[in-house]
Design a protein around this nucleic acid. Structure first.
Lengths: 262, 262
DNA sequence: AAGTGGTCTAGACCACGCA
DNA sequence: GCGTGGTCTAGACCACTTA
């Protein structure tokens, strides 16, 4: 016999999965569940609900009750190359249309000079004593934070340039880098999936049970030396990360190009 | 004043972060903590510990105690993993090297015919009555599951072909698709970050507090019609996802290609 | 046998949003 | 003021692993 709290979680999880409890629906109260499962110790019911909270399926809204989580994923496209008329447009217009998206973007920008952490130092190939400049941005949609975007560049490169302006740079900071002789021609993306730190929970106002993707972009100049590292922290419940790939003719001589299939 | 259970979690989290409690270390027992924080209700202590469990920082090993999670087979060595030329190669050789390179890969393959779920149906542009074939694979390294890889194709396309062989296909299933006149030339990747379902926890033997990336690859033929959908479920604690991008000359006419920086 | 965490009981008081 | 979830008390018995 399964423990009561697991039965509670399993039953509710199934109701959420099959649509009996659609997104936004109110769940039974703790008292309801206590009665229904004959347990009558609140902790047992709460233990079951906490499973679902930590799975990101429900959120408690005190003192209104528990509600099925509503997700509004935004498309997060590290790439920017959609020039065919692709079927994926259907997928995403659908995703976005269903959320009725007229949210206004905004962002906070802070620029400072710091000692790089090991992640940044390694990717920028800096020595122990080198300093970096960092543009920290918290990007919002109608006030709701939806990702963190911290760009790091060697201080020796960007010092005194417009890159360090703590405001939007109309022609783009990458244009500034190009003007400094460091045009970006190649990028390496690494994506780590993990639970957020308390700091990230605070900055992004994350609910419990929300994992994040840490998206580290290292960009290189034409001589293959690194120019900039950007660390994006994107909440799993607010984004889908999208890439498009086209068959590269240079792959022809390879035995199998697997496309992620095997 | 913060609640006791949060103080417990905060204190332990800090000790884990600063190395006082290194990976693999044993935490104080519930009884120890009860005494130390003067709370003497087990539930309070357990509430604090459960925070850390759900953050993926610690794991309970009954009845030995709680231990700091040992993970991140992806931690980079302070070496030259970012050399010139294709850096991603270095990352992966490093990844394998750091995990003890002699692990033998294996996989279970099952093939069946099912009604597609909405995710698959939409991406394959199927009607309500169309069926799909699915190759479900659980891929292992020395017995430890490290990802799930389910490929879906229209039954009408692959029926009777080698694609449906429930075993490794030496020349690759994509070659089989090419022989069927549906060579894959383009792919759309979507990455969703979320907590795993109980089913995934079981198949991948995930610890608590381990998020997953659901990596959906839709592949297209030369005529831009979808051929196959592959859903990879990859545990966050065992993988880093890497893409490399090269500046596309066709992007020149665009005002700003952002490289993920803004 | 001892010690650990897993589950559960039967209460208590509090903080907060809403009617 | 009422109902909700948030926190906490002070116990109980059980399952499992190791000594």
């Amino acid at each position: 016999m399964k423990p009561i709290y697991q039965r509670i979680a399993d039953d509710l999880r199934e109701q959420i999965a099959d649509g009996t409890l659609p997104p936004g629906a109110k769940l039974p109260t703790e008292a309801d569940l206590r009665e229904k499962y004959g347990t009558s110790a609140r902790s047992t019911v709460r233990q079951g609900l906490s499973l679902l909270v930590n799975e990101g399926l429900i959120v408690p809204q005190r003192p209104k009750g528990y509600f099925v989580r509503e997700i509004r994923p935004l498309v997060y496209r590290p790439q920017d190359e959609f020039r065919r008329k692709p079927p994926e447009v259907d997928i995403y217009t659908h995703l976005l249309a269903s959320t009725g998206d007229e949210r206004r973007p905004a962002q906070d920008i802070e620029v400072s000079i710091v000692e790089p952490g090991p992640t940044v130092r390694k990717r920028l190939q800096l020595s122990e004593t080198d300093l970096v400049a960092v543009r920290r941005r918290t990007r919002r949609l109608d006030g709701e934070a939806y990702n963190l975007n911290d760009s790091y560049a060697p201080l020796s490169l960007v010092e005194g340039s417009e890159w360090m302006t703590p405001a939007d740079v109309a022609r783009g900071t990458n244009t500034v880098l190009a003007e400094l002789g460091r045009e970006l021609v190649r990028a390496l993306d690494e994506i780590y999936v993990r639970m957020p730190t308390p700091e990230e929970v605070r900055r992004l106002d994350l609910g419990p049970g929300t994992p994040v993707a840490e998206h580290v972009v290292t960009t290189f100049a034409a001589d293959d030396s690194p120019v900039q590292v950007t660390i994006n922290v994107v909440p799993g419940d607010r984004h889908v990360i999208v890439y498009e790939r086209v068959k590269d003719p240079r792959d022809e001589d390879r035995p199998r190009s697997n496309w992620g299939a095997e």
